[in-house]
């Protein structure tokens, strides 16, 4: 199976910590004979094993499930978050997508709200902060009525599920020319704001989560839709429009829901 390997001209961003300037390191000599069946992260594993053999510090990158659902992995590969293959996370991108001899640049997701921890690893806790601001239905364990007492029209449930499929990887932020997290925010909002369970807190939630998004230092949406193109789960920017609508209503109504 020798013809199933490729050599890459690989450049990986190395940065020892948030204070370090950082630079691209040329790892072409460590990226030879890479199996085309390997995933992108497995290619980095191989490079790391070879680096270690030379006594070099391995490349730090986040990853966990490696089946495209945990949302922990992510890097910008040749200018595109998660690489050029659509609807695919970095761990699901395979090396057969690359030509022998291809030049590959790997860089961390860049946004002020995602400071670099080391190399390709960034701190995305601002996403948690947004959810903590209101990304929940306030229901105590044990207080729930029977599940079938809240009928949800199938179309609504399906639409909510479309939004809830977000894996929180941050590719939308990385792809956005403004480093906005509007797609993430709107998906979180749409999931709960669509469902009957989410109605009582709908506008409070919208205001609070938007404020948390802005406070975290994310930019605003200018409707370029790069986020949608980069999203490994195909979350639609329609949810951003839906969020905007909710923001308008939230802005024009008081706490009791009356028009100001």
């Amino acid at each position: 199976m020798s013809d199933d390997t490729i050599d890459l001209r690989l450049h990986v961003w190395r940065q020892r910590g948030p204070g370090d300037e950082g630079r691209f390191a040329d790892y072409s000599k460590y990226a030879k004979r890479i199996s085309t069946h390997a995933s992108f992260l497995e290619m980095l594993d191989v490079v790391n094993e070879r680096l270690a053999a030379d006594g070099e510090r391995p490349i730090a990158f986040d990853h966990d499930c490696r089946e495209g659902i945990c949302g922990m992995c992510g890097a910008v590969i040749n200018g595109v978050p998660h690489g050029h293959r659509t609807l695919t996370t970095t761990c699901q991108l395979h090396m057969r997508e690359f030509q022998n001899g291809a030049e590959v640049f790997v860089e961390p997701f860049r946004a002020t709200a995602f400071p670099v921890i080391e190399d390709l690893m960034v701190d995305r806790s601002s996403f948690d902060t947004i959810v903590q601001a209101g990304g929940y239905v306030s229901v105590r364990t044990g207080a729930a009525p029977d599940a079938n007492e809240i009928p949800v029209p199938k179309q609504i449930a399906d639409r909510a599920m479309d939004a809830a499929a977000c894996i929180g990887c941050g590719a939308c932020v990385a792809a956005c020319p403004n480093a906005s997290a509007s797609l993430f925010l709107s998906a979180k909002l749409a999931h709960l704001n669509l469902l009957p369970q989410g109605q009582p807190e709908r506008y409070r939630r919208t205001r609070a989560m938007l404020a948390a998004h802005d406070d975290a230092g994310f930019g605003g949406c200018t409707n370029h839709r790069e986020c949608e193109a980069a999203c490994p789960k195909g979350i639609s920017t329609d949810f951003i429009a839906r969020m905007n609508r909710d923001v308008i209503v939230a802005s024009l109504t008081d706490k009791d829901g009356n028009l100001i």
Binding site: F24, G79, A111, P177, N178, G217, A230
Partner: peptide, 25 residues
């Protein structure tokens, strides 16, 4: 102005637009 500070440090290898139209850019 806000958007410019949201990515204080830009990509060192330029980010590639996937679907942005010329008009939007």
């Amino acid at each position: 102005r806000r958007n410019a500070t949201a990515r204080a440090r830009g990509y060192q290898k330029p980010r590639k637009d996937q679907i942005t139209t010329y008009a939007a850019r």
